[in-house]
Each structure stands twice: as C-alpha cells, then as structure tokens.
Write a protein that binds this DNA or RNA. Structure first.
Length: 422
RNA sequence: GGAGAAUUGGCAGAGUGGUCGAAUGCACUGGUCUUGAAAACCAGCGUACCGCAAGGUACCGGGGGUUCGAAUCCCUCAUUCUCCGCCA
C-alpha cells in the first residue's frame, strides 16, 4: 500500500509514476483525496463530541461522589443527544476510512526511476547476459523426456495422487532436489542470510501483510475450516516476521533466508507453457528477504542480484537479467529484476528468479518501522528474491548439461550427492 | 478432545465501574555527584491519528455488548499455562 501522506503532498509524482505501468491513477487519487478531506473533517467533529462526552462523564462521577444525585442525573440527560451524534459520526468516519483503504489497495507501487514505461514482457530491458549455450552434436531432449528416460520425475503419479502440477520426484530426481536446496541455503548463509524454517500455512493477517490479500486471493490455496492459506512463497511467512515491529534504531540490515515448498493455484495457462516442470502447483524455492534502511535498499538490491548471478554461474547455466518494465513489474514492487535461464531443448528463456525492492509498499501494511536518528518511527524498506526456484533450474540443468546418454551434474552440487552424473 | 487458570507499557507486576493512559520495581535516556566507574539523587521514558499550535481522540490479547462512564461487568474468538486423554 502506498502511504496516503504521499498522495496528500505529492500526488503528481504518483500519477506520473504509475503511467509507466499504463495505470491511470488520477481518478482513484482524486477520490482518495476528497474522501480523505471529508474523513478528517468528520473525524474532527467526532473527536469534539467524544471530548464533550468524556468531560460530562467525568463530571457525573464527581457529582456522584459528592452525593449530588440530582445534578448528576441532570447531566446524564444531556448525554443522550451527544451519544446519538457520536454514533452517527463514528459510522461516517468508519465508512470513509474503509472506502479510503479500499481505494488505496487498488493503487500499485510507483515504479523506480530506472524502470521504463511499458505494457508487457516485450518491453523489458535486458541489462546483463552471461554464459554460453551448450553445443550438442545430437538432438537435445526436453527435460520431460529426460526425467522420463531416467525415471527422475513421475508426473502421472502426481496426477494420480493429487492432480496435475504436483510431480513426484524419484531416486536421483529426488536427491537432486535435496542437493539444490542444500546448495542454495548454504550459499545464502555464506552471503550472510540467516536460515529460517517457516510455517507453510499462514493466517489472513499475514497474507494481508505481504499483499497476497485482498487482490490476489485466487492465487492461494485456502482452507476454510481453519481460515488458513497455503503459502505461495516463503516471502509471506518470512516477511511477516516483521509485521508490527519497530526496530529500536536506524542501524540495521536484516537478511534472512528460507526454503519452503510453494503452493500456487495459478490459472489460465495451457500447452507447452505448463509442460513438465515449467509451471506447477507445488514447487520448491529458497527465498532471500531483506529489511533495510531506506538509504540502503538500492545497494541491497544490487547485492541480491550479484548473489543470484553467482548461483547461476556456479551451476554453469546461460542466463540473462531483465529489468522489468512498468507494466510487467508486480503490483507491490517498485523495481524487479528477473533472471532467466536458457532452455536449450525448449529453445526458450525460463524465469528462475525474481528479485524486487518494495520500498515502503509492504512495510506500510506490515507496520514495519525503525526509530530514526530523531527517535521518530519511520517505515523500513523490504526486498526479496528467489535464490532460487527449483523446477526450472532442474529443467535447464537437465537440458543444458545433458550428454549423449545422461546428464552431467555441475561440480558445485557434487558434495551433496553420491553421484556426479545421471 | 475434556476440565480449570490466565492475557495490562521493553520486562516484571498492581489495579474488579468514575480525574486510570494506567501504581510500583527493573531496564533505558539525560543531568547532579565522582579522577573514572558503581551507588545515590533529580528529570524523562508506549503507539497511532487529527491539528500550525495549544491540545484532542483512540488503544490494558482481538471483536462485539451493557453503562452517562469499562483495564475492571457480559458475550465471542484467539493465544498461553496446569491437569486428564490421544499421539509422530
């Protein structure tokens, strides 16, 4: 959520900024501001009435103590009118407050200066490329043929047990998952992130805190009996650690990581895009999350980028980094870098990581603050990124490192495995 | 799953209808004293919103209710602890 303060003082920058998303905010902004003005006016009235009521009540207390029953009862009579007024004003104020919040929820984050205007993924900028495409002297197989041939993943079994999008990893396939998770966590730890093992199920307040609710409800699996949600990413439990937190000073840099399965209902995709590991309802991911002083979030984003780059380089994968354009940047993000690896057999780029800065967009909802030098509470900045999401990494590892009759496992994973090739 | 008890400021803990946003202690911050430290003493010390300010309003686990007035009474939900049951 944007800070309403920002709309009050600088609505132009918000409206201008959101144009980069092809989002016309002017109507919502004006609406918010007029309701905000009304809200403040009504609230002032309400507080005045409340103040009177408090005074009279105090008076009554004193009168009773002094035994002046009659005067007390007369005072009581005065309150009935005020009470009705108070009720009406409270109602008005609440309605206005809710309207404003609802409108504010509709506004996406304002893109960072560096973000270019654009409508879709076609307008994303490639800002970095590394690695080389493998050279095959045979026809490379797509990963779903490899997993089938070497019995690494049984997609049909997943269908039998759960449904489409819930693969069953078997033997070396399962071990490879475990190795990647361990590798990613170890690398994150080396980079200073503290490992967390988080709940996979969260309550409504947490889903609100990171912005999955109210807009993206359909993305999550929901369990109505207990009113709980399956996490779509570790970002939710990890970032919510800091919901309603005020850090005691301005000297902090919080770096945490965690592996979790992620559950996504998704919708509306078909054919090649969902083939094999390309798109799943359940997948594994190691996430990195940071809480930073506003002055440091830019540097933090760069640092996270370097971390993800180093992972892909150690895995020996060809990749590129995109800076997403306004239209493709997620609702809550101010800037996002997507990492894509080249899938040699499918001949396309697969997104394996997304690293974003949210500035104060999440911390507004989370109420995540720190005490600045003046001892005032100030909103923190949050960032997060995948480091990394497994399925597409597995897909491209298998495809890009395949040999005539098998797959070479990159050396960085050897210590986690009791085999070096499949 | 059953029975009982509890939930108050950073922590501990008082407060069972009326100047209670809340005693007291500890912690913390500033000051006095001291060569320095400790001790002692003095002062300050929650969050948010509205307001230029003075100030006002709201918050005693969450939500709702009773009342002129609620930390205090009632309902409801959540959490924690104790006992019993079940269990990886």
């Amino acid at each position: 959520m944007l800070e309403i303060q920002r709309l009050r003082t600088d609505k132009e920058s918000v409206i201008e900024g959101l144009k980069k998303r092809h989002f016309d905010a002017s109507e919502i902004v004006e609406n918010v501001l007029s309701k905000d003005e009304e809200w403040r006016a009504e609230k002032a009235k309400l507080e005045e009435v409340a103040s009177k009521m408090n005074q009279i009540s105090k008076q009554i207390g004193i009168l009773f103590k002094e035994g002046k029953q009659q005067e007390a009862n007369e005072a009581k009579a005065q309150t009935s009118v005020l009470k009705v007024q108070e009720g009406e004003l409270k109602e008005k104020v609440d309605v206005l407050q809710n309207d404003i919040t609802e409108l504010m929820y509709q506004l996406p984050n304002v893109p960072n200066q560096l973000v270019k205007a654009g409508k879709s993924e076609l307008d994303n900028e490639t800002i970095f490329e590394a690695g080389e495409a493998p050279n095959f002297d045979f026809k490379p197989m797509p990963h779903w043929e490899i997993t089938d041939k070497f019995n690494l993943i049984d997609f049909e079994l997943g269908v039998k047990i759960t449904g489409a999008g819930f693969p069953m990893y078997i033997g070396k396939g399962a071990k490879l998952q475990r190795a990647l998770i361990a590798f990613f966590l170890d690398e994150a730890e080396k980079a200073g992130y503290i490992e967390h093992q988080a709940p996979l199920v969260v309550n409504e307040a947490s889903a609100m805190g990171t912005g999955q609710l109210p807009d993206k409800e359909g993305q999550m699996y929901y369990m109505p009996v207990d009113d709980l949600y399956l996490i779509p990413t570790a970002e939710v439990p990890l970032t919510n650690i800091y919901r309603d937190v005020i850090l005691p000073n301005d000297d902090f840099s919080i770096k945490i990581t965690g592996y979790t399965p992620c559950f996504r209902r998704e919708a509306g995709s078909y054919g090649k895009d969902v083939r094999g590991l390309n798109r799943l309802h359940q997948f594994d991911k190691v996430e990195i999350v940071r809480v930073e002083h506003p002055d440091n979030s830019e540097a933090a984003l760069e640092e996270m980028m370097e971390h993800v780059k180093s992972l892909l380089e150690k895995l020996g994968l060809q990749y590129r980094v995109l800076r997403l354009c306004g239209g493709d940047t997620g609702f809550a993000a101010a800037m996002t870098y997507d990492f894509e690896v080249y899938s040699a057999a499918q001949e396309k780029w697969l997104e394996v990581s997304s690293v974003s800065r949210f500035d104060t967009f999440q911390s507004t909802r989370l109420k995540l603050r720190f005490k600045n030098a003046d001892k005032k509470s100030q909103l923190c900045h949050t960032l997060n990124g995948s480091a990394l999401a497994l399925p597409r990494i597995v897909a491209s590892l298998l495809e890009n490192h395949q040999i005539e009759n098998g797959v070479e496992i990159p050396s960085c994973l050897h210590k986690y495995l009791n085999f070096e090739r499949i």
